[in-house]
Design a protein around this nucleic acid. Structure first.
Lengths: 187, 187
DNA sequence: GTCTATACAACGATAGAC
DNA sequence: GTCTATCGTTGTATAGAC
């Protein structure tokens, strides 16, 4: 098999970038085409429909994002510190979460295949946070609720920051959550 | 002034419904037209551009949503109970927040006027929650962080629920947050 | 596998009669 | 104020040569 998938790779990379910047629904195949520099025919050869392109690009983005998040959660440190490290990770709050934003994208929600990929990201992320909290001594049932809350605070932080145009809103939200988790642990 | 604004009201109501169901960017003026039952010309008479229609419909939705949220926060009850009541309000998690979802809508974020209206909703909501937490005995600086966290948990809960297709994700998130707030208050 | 050229529908918006 | 008819553009997708 010769090196003929170059155009495909460039198409996926261009799509990931445009989707992150403008969303899936607001990005046309034509724009991806222009950004990638390949020809019209190549796009439709590798990705017969927009659905196919979206699935490939979103899949790649989800994989990247999950790997990054899991790194913070599996560092060499006490469990509670790892949970706090996840919360406090540096984030481009005004840009929004590359994955979370897809949830508000009609083009994604209307496409079952793509939506499932996005859903998997969050179930796996919540599971990972719950394991860390359990390790930190939180009883199982409560660890799952706290994990949902922690991941939700981050996603909601993005919403607040973008809506108000103020990145501090995200910082305030994670600070509030971190303080509550520490208060509970330190009693 | 005779009763000639009827078409306008119907247009706004139809737009609010369609925007809530499908988002702003994914809803065309034509669809609003069809749903409202008025003619093409009437739409463009009352709302020369899509921007004007969006501003009117989003403004009305924000007003409604803010009034509803503030009701839970100003009920006749101890301060902490009111904060918990806000968190625990019944919500259609899979539908998403009528206001928060706009944050992920490119058509809204590209329109400064509309985005400002959405931003105001959140600053006022966070302020109201912060006041209640202060009243509940949380020191001022921390009350603002906790308020951001509380509002973010709700918004993030919507994201989790929609992504996973599971309304329980929202319930788990607010349960986790409520438990942390109560633990802190009960020490 | 890649290209250029093109099809056809829906988009936001306007024209002009009533 | 409301209507029908229509404009020019962009959307997703296809045709067919190379």
């Amino acid at each position: 098999m010769t090196r003929t998938t170059d155009a495909r790779d460039r198409l996926v990379a261009a799509a990931q970038e445009l989707y992150a910047a403008r969303g899936v629904g607001a990005t046309s195949p034509r724009q991806v085409l222009a950004a990638s520099g390949v020809g019209q025919g190549s796009l439709y050869h590798h990705f017969p429909t927009k659905h196919d392109l979206t699935l490939a690009a979103v899949g790649a983005t989800v994989e990247d994002a999950l790997a990054e998040s899991l790194r913070a959660l599996s560092a060499e440190a006490p469990a509670l510190d790892r949970a706090l490290a996840y919360l406090g990770r540096p984030r481009d709050a005004l840009a929004g979460c590359k994955v979370g934003r897809l949830t508000g994208d009609q083009a994604v929600m209307d496409d079952d295949g793509v939506r499932t990929v996005v859903g998997t990201y969050f179930t796996r992320l919540v599971d990972a946070v719950a394991r860390v909290l359990t390790e930190a001594g939180v009883p199982d049932a409560e660890a799952r609720d706290r994990a949902h809350a922690a991941v939700a605070v981050v996603q909601g932080g993005y919403v607040l920051a973008r809506a108000t145009g103020d990145a501090d809103a995200m910082r305030a939200a994670v600070r509030g959550m971190a303080a509550l988790l520490q208060a509970e642990a330190g009693r």
